[in-house]
Simulated assay, not measured.
Amino acid sequence: MLMTKTLLFLSVFIAGFASAQEDLLKDIDTIQTKTPDMEQPAFKALQIVTGQSTKLPAKNEWYMVVAHRFGDISKGFKDFFGLDNASTKLGGIYGITDGISVSLSRETNLKTFEGAIKYRLIKQSENFPVDLVGYHVMAVNTDLSKDNYPDLRFGDRLSYLTQALISRRFNDKFSLQLTPSYVHKNLYEPAIEDKNQFLAGMGGRYKISKRISLNAEYFVNFDNHSFYKNPLSLGMDIETGGHVFQLLFTNSQLNSDIGYLTNASGKWEKGQIFFGFNLYRVF
């Protein structure tokens, strides 16, 4: 009952905040576009919720990323609905060309650094039905200690992610994306996960007003072990001119791409949910 009331309160608060943002920005929106509908990006943000979308920065654009995940809200007032246990990711993204970007980020949880490259292979148009984007990540877990792993080598800290991002913008309101993924970890716990993991993801965006959309994504991990859960996330995009602000609920507290996909620990049915946000600022 307490969890239901909490989620209801947060939902009302978010809806009110979004409505306020809509009113405040109504008179200052100067963005004009003559781009045909099918040639506009399927997603407004670089992430659907936590997983990557097919959107890329424009050439010479800099993005600053601040992503925050609070703790498990099911613990209630004991941890102040998760506010006592937060994880933060800071990062930067640069558009080398209109179709290639690179990024570097660092997350407090597991002290993980991630470097990534994202590139467009095919753009949706009248002649082709989908956007096709490649995404590759190399992560370094700097939290690992030789006290726990006496034979630890630098290579053991590394893990890798390869994704194909396949999206289609069906109309001005609705976009959908499929995300087949492969993760390789040099150091892993055989009892709870595999060295090589294959996942299939689906995510979507539905626009409910000029600057607000509701988003959702779900990944199925075909790893034979069941210690970690499949990540399921719900979010809201709020466009505010110079940046996109994303509010979200998820069962995976980690912000890093690989951590999010392979280390989700919460159970939605038990209220083990993490509230958070992503903030992108364009320069």
Rank of each mutant, 00 (worst) to 15 (best):
I96S: 06
A67Y: 05
V49S: 07
G92S: 03
Y94A: 07
V65Y: 02
L56I: 08
I73Q: 02
G71T: 02
T50A: 05
T88L: 10
G51S: 15
S103P: 03
K44D: 14
A58D: 13
G91M: 01
V49N: 09
E61N: 11
S101P: 02
G71Q: 07
S87P: 03
L83T: 13
V66T: 08
K44Q: 14
V102I: 15
P57C: 08
G92L: 14
A58S: 15
S87V: 12
D79T: 15
G99V: 00
I73F: 14
S74T: 07
W62T: 11
F80W: 07
D72P: 06
Y63G: 04
I100F: 14
K78P: 00
H68F: 06
K75R: 11
P57R: 03
A58W: 04
L56M: 12
A58Y: 06
G51R: 07
G95F: 04
D79E: 13
V49F: 08
I48S: 06
D79C: 01
A58R: 11
H68Y: 10
L46K: 08
G95N: 08
M64W: 12
I93W: 01
T54K: 13
T50Y: 03
I96Y: 03
F80D: 10
A58Q: 15
T54W: 13
Y63M: 06
V66N: 09
G99E: 10
S53V: 07
A45S: 15
K44F: 09
S53T: 11
D79M: 02
G99A: 09
S53C: 13
P57W: 05
G51N: 10
N60E: 11
G51W: 02
F70D: 00
G92T: 10
S53H: 11
T54P: 13
F70G: 04
G51I: 01
K75H: 10
G99P: 00
S74V: 01
S87D: 14
K89D: 02
N85W: 01
T50C: 03
V49T: 09
I93H: 01
A67H: 04
L83F: 14
V66S: 12
S103Q: 12
Q52M: 08
T54L: 12
G92E: 00
K89Y: 03
Q52E: 10
K44I: 07
F70K: 00
Y63T: 03
N60K: 12
A45R: 12
E61Q: 12
W62Q: 05
G82Y: 05
I100V: 15
D98Q: 08
T88C: 00
A45N: 15
I93A: 03
A45I: 03
D84A: 08
M64F: 15
V66Q: 09
A86M: 01
I93V: 14
I93T: 09
P57Q: 09
P57A: 07
T50I: 08
F77L: 12
E61W: 05
S74N: 14
K78L: 02
L56N: 10
W62F: 15
T97Y: 12
E61K: 01
D72N: 15
D98F: 05
K55L: 11
L56Y: 11
I96G: 04
A58V: 04
G82F: 09
L46H: 14
D98C: 03
V49C: 10
A45Q: 14
T88N: 06
F80T: 06
F80K: 11
T54F: 15
K44W: 05
S103R: 05
P57M: 09
G95L: 04
I93R: 06
A67P: 00
S74M: 04
L90H: 05
D98A: 05
S101T: 01
I93C: 01
G91L: 02
